[in-house]
């Protein structure tokens, strides 16, 4: 079975650890981490990921910009993108979804909810 590769783009080390802690419950998962949009884009272009998780508010390049750049790639339209942010306004949610996000979660969210959403996006049956 090939590993599940997930890219986590999040500027807060605490949240990165929190997300990774939740995702490690997926068997055979390989997680790559990035602290901002630019680093995230570099890593995204180097490997084939099964899923990308992005925060919106990040230094250098925010998550929405990263999301739009990811979706511009011709082969990237099918890669699920999960947005995890503190921005709880409907307008932010709509904007992220219109840019191509597949799911939108607001912080604080339990690790189990993150895991469940990731499983759903990856088509993993519980």
């Amino acid at each position: 079975m090939s590993p599940i590769k997930i890219l986590v783009v999040e500027d807060s080390p605490t949240m990165r650890q929190f997300i990774c802690f939740a995702l490690r419950r997926l068997p055979g998962v390989v997680i790559a981490e990035a602290a901002d949009g630019v680093e995230g884009l570099k890593k995204f272009n180097l490997e084939n990921f099964n899923l990308v998780m992005v925060d919106i508010n990040m230094p250098i390049m925010d998550g929405l910009k990263l999301l739009s750049l990811i979706r511009k790639g011709p082969l990237n339209s099918k890669i699920p993108v999960l947005v995890l942010t503190t921005e709880g306004a409907q307008a932010d949610r709509d904007r992220a979804l219109s840019l191509g996000a597949d799911a939108y979660l607001t912080k604080p969210t339990p690790g189990s909810v993150i895991l469940k959403t990731v499983k759903r996006l990856l088509g993993i049956v519980e």
């Binding site: 807060s12 605490t14 949240m15 912080k107 604080p108």
Partner: peptide
């Protein structure tokens, strides 16, 4: 910085 991150991300304070 870590205290701020915990309060924002884990507690959910604005």
């Amino acid at each position: 910085q870590i205290i701020l991150e915990i309060v924002i991300n884990l507690i959910g304070a604005e």
